[in-house]
Every structure is written in C-alpha cells, then in structure tokens.
C-alpha cells in the first residue's frame, strides 16, 4: 500500500523546525569560537585593504591632471608601489601566524572525556559510542549526544565514499575518508541542539545527510547513555506489538538492528531507540508516527535514491510498524 501523496505532503508541512543552529558565525563551541575570532580578524583586515585599494583606484581614475610636474611625481610611484608590496608581505605574514596559532588551539588534546566514532554512509551517519567494555558499547544514528563543557574526540571513518562532518556552530569540518581515520575535537560551551550537515559531495542524497548534535549537562548525558545502552523496550500497546511481529517478519530485520529482538541487520541505521531521536532519515523528517509511516511507506519519494527500498506493506502493517517504531524510545 502507498500512502496517498497528500497525506505525506501534509506530514512534511506539519513538521516544525528542528533545525537547531547551523552557522559558523554563531559559534557555541570552543573550536568554533576560536575560529570565529580568527575569521573576524582576517575579514576586518581584508576589508580594510580592499577599501584602501578602492580609494586608490577612484583617486587614480578621477584625479585632476596637470601637465607640469607629472614627470617628477611619477618617480615617486616606484616608492609607493614598493611600500605597498612590503605592506602586503607584512599583512599576510601576520595572518599566516594567526592561523597557525588558531590551528594549534583547535587541535586534538591528549585526553578527551569521550571518544565517539562516526562512520559516514551514503546517506546517513552511524554513530558508535565505543567502550573498552563491549557490553557498554552502543550505536545510534544521525544523532550525537555530548556532555557540555567537555572535550569530545570524534573519530571519523567512512564505509563508502568521502563525506565531511560539519557542525559549524561547534567546530570546523573534517572529511571522512575511506581507508583512513580522521579526528576532530568537539566541545559545546552551552547546551543546545546543533545541526550539522555532510559537506562533501557524496552522491544522490548528499543534500539530505544531516545530523543533530545535542549538548546537554553531564547528568542528562549520562542518563541518555544508560538508556541507549539498554535493549529496546518491549512494546506495550497492541498495535505496536503487532508492529514488532511484522517488522521481524518483513525484510526490515535484514537491514536494521533492534537490540533485544531477532532483527540484526547492519545495512541501515540501528533502530533500537529510533523513537527517541529527534529526526529520521538523516535530518529529513522530525520523528512522529506520521513521518515514520510516510518514510516507511515510500522512502524513495521522500529521499530519492537512498538505500532503503520501498517494502510492500498493507495499510494495517504500516500503521502497526509505525506505532512500533515510535514506541522504541
């Protein structure tokens, strides 16, 4: 069954802004703040230089010319031009040094409070909170929680093509390169939801490869982590129970993991706690029962070309599975 386009179109329309903050000029994390300082300094200097050049240009074009004495004045030009070149050298040297120090300040510190592995996939983010104790390791997707005021070390990997991890309000971007591991320092100074988006062209749905970074106080973060580590909650309501059965019977389970159930697929995002996430399909839709239904009914229309196929379901199955998904808090 397919949901009629009108239903899912209106679903999209209802979804309210869950965009968080995605801006390099509104920094909320230490690295981004350092960079913003550097940026405003460089922009200011460059604007000034440009203005000076423009003043010279206008003057050179419009100045009154007299025939007398021009020869002598022209000799002064050599001095002026040399001075300007000298000034250029000094200015760029200054900017180079400033960049160098900023680079140092945003580098990876020796110790980090937390290390997260983010693996880019066409077109979603696999997020792994690894722990030396495998029992404490857990996975989620497209949503990263971090404790406020702590250095977080993000390890960046890719399973397919090059992606780029970019949460501008918190830090500059860094590519996820197949065959290599890159790293990035994240640190939020204030609680909030920070939106980020894949910044390296990675194919058809590069456009829809967003993620949310949720910075919260360390206690909430710990609570969240404990909840995520746990297996999925057993569905209570009858439609959700039926949904779970359908989910496991249908091809869904071949691609998705729901911990605590036989669903162990690894092609798609871990859905153990999908209902607790703010958005689904890498920032495409806010998580509601309606949007889940719209997504499951026809992922290829909402996000053309993505790697989840349309699985034929009856309307009842669809309703039940959506209820089940929503219940996975």
């Amino acid at each position: 069954m397919r949901m009629s386009p009108i239903i899912w179109m209106s679903t999209i329309a209802i979804i309210s802004g869950c965009t968080g903050n995605q801006s390099a000029i509104n920094p909320k994390g230490a690295p981004a703040i350092h960079i913003a300082h550097l940026m405003s300094g460089i922009v200011a200097v460059c604007t000034l230089v440009w203005l000076l050049v423009m003043v010279m240009l206008v003057w050179a074009l419009l100045r009154k010319r007299s025939d007398a004495g021009e020869q002598a004045r022209e000799r002064g030009l050599t001095t002026t031009v040399s001075a300007a070149v000298g000034a250029t050298a000094v200015i760029i040297a200054g900017m180079t040094i400033a960049s160098f120090y900023t680079t140092r300040d945003i580098g990876i510190p020796g110790e980090a409070a937390l290390t997260i592995t983010v693996r880019g996939q066409q077109w979603w983010w696999q997020v792994i909170y690894a722990d030396p104790d495998p029992a404490l390791t857990f996975q989620t997707a497209n949503e990263i929680h971090i404790p406020v005021g702590r250095d977080v070390h993000v390890q960046l990997e890719s399973t397919d093509v090059v992606h780029s991890f970019w949460v501008p309000s918190l830090a500059g971007k860094q590519d996820l390169v197949p065959g290599r591991t890159n790293s990035l320092l994240l640190r939020a100074e204030r609680p909030g939801i920070y939106r980020g988006q894949c910044a390296e062209f990675c194919g058809l749905q590069h456009t829809h490869m967003a993620m949310m970074v949720i910075a919260e106080d360390p206690e909430s973060f710990e609570r969240w982590a404990v909840a995520q580590r746990g297996n999925s909650v057993n569905p209570g309501k009858p439609d959700a129970v039926a949904g779970q059965v359908a989910f496991i019977a249908k091809p869904c389970a071949a691609c998705h993991t729901v911990r605590g159930t036989p669903a162990m697929g690894t092609t798609g995002p871990d859905l153990t706690h999908v209902g607790s996430r703010k958005t689904i399909a890498a920032g495409l839709l806010e998580t509601t029962r309606g949007s889940l239904a719209a997504w499951i009914a026809d992922p290829q229309t909402l996000k053309p070309g993505n790697n989840m196929p349309m699985v034929p379901l009856t309307s009842v199955e669809l309703k039940n599975i959506s209820a089940y998904m929503e219940s996975l808090k």
Binding site: W50, L57, T102
Partner: peptide, 26 residues
C-alpha cells in the same frame, strides 16, 4: 579591479586552515 580584489581577499581567507575548515565546500 573591484571584483577581483574581493575574490583575492576571500582567497586569502580560505588559505587560512582554520578559516577554511568552516567555509570549505560551502
């Protein structure tokens, strides 16, 4: 002259590594 110098200035901006980490591919 007017336009190229602006472009040159933004070139110098993106030449700075930290600056570029924010604006690369944007």
């Amino acid at each position: 002259m007017v336009i190229f110098v602006i472009g040159g200035m933004t070139g110098v901006m993106v030449a700075s590594v930290p600056f570029d980490t924010q604006v690369h591919d944007t």
